[in-house]
Amino acid sequence: MKNKVILVSSDQLGKGDKDLGETVLETFFTLLKQREEKPVAIFLMNRGVFTLTEQSLVSVHLQEIEKSGVPVLACKTCVDYYNVEDKLVGGEISGMGHFIELASKHEVLTIA
């Protein structure tokens, strides 16, 4: 994960059953937080911003990853679109310009 930005564009991993996709995404972040080598940042866009709400089990893992020093960034346009700003339990709101800056310097791993 060294020198990577993780782009999360959904509240589940993969296409298919929603519950399975949420469980697989939670497993991904559970394992990620246990690694010594962490990503440079995690950027959430589209439905990915829902992973930072209390309703998502992923939010606990994202908060722990953030506490380890990894910025967790939620796309402002997406947060506004889904009207979830007051439901976010961690991270910070950021813009597409910041993501482009990160993507120009680091490899992007997309979780969709």
Rank of each mutant, 00 (worst) to 15 (best):
S68L: 12
V70D: 02
T53V: 06
L52I: 03
I65D: 08
Y81L: 12
R35H: 12
T53W: 02
I42T: 01
I42D: 02
H61K: 15
S56H: 02
H61D: 11
F43S: 02
E54I: 07
T77E: 08
K76F: 10
K33D: 09
Y82D: 02
A74T: 09
E36P: 09
T51H: 00
P71E: 06
K67Y: 04
G69V: 07
P71W: 00
R47K: 14
D80V: 05
N46T: 14
K33V: 13
P39V: 08
A74V: 10
A41F: 04
E36T: 14
Y81C: 03
R35Q: 15
T53E: 02
N83S: 14
A74N: 09
I42W: 01
I42C: 06
H61C: 11
T77L: 09
V70F: 05
T51N: 10
E85C: 09
D86M: 10
Q55S: 13
E36S: 14
I65Q: 05
V58I: 12
I42Y: 03
V40W: 01
S56N: 03
L44K: 06
E36M: 13
Q34P: 01
S56D: 05
C75N: 12
C78W: 00
F43E: 02
E66D: 10
E37W: 04
A41C: 06
T53F: 02
Q34E: 15
K33R: 14
V79E: 06
R35W: 06
V58Q: 03
C75G: 07
E37D: 14
L62T: 08
L52K: 04
V49C: 08
V72H: 08
R47Y: 12
A41Y: 01
Q55M: 11
V49P: 00
H61Y: 14
T51M: 01
F43R: 00
G69S: 07
E37G: 04
S68Q: 13
V72Q: 08
V79L: 08
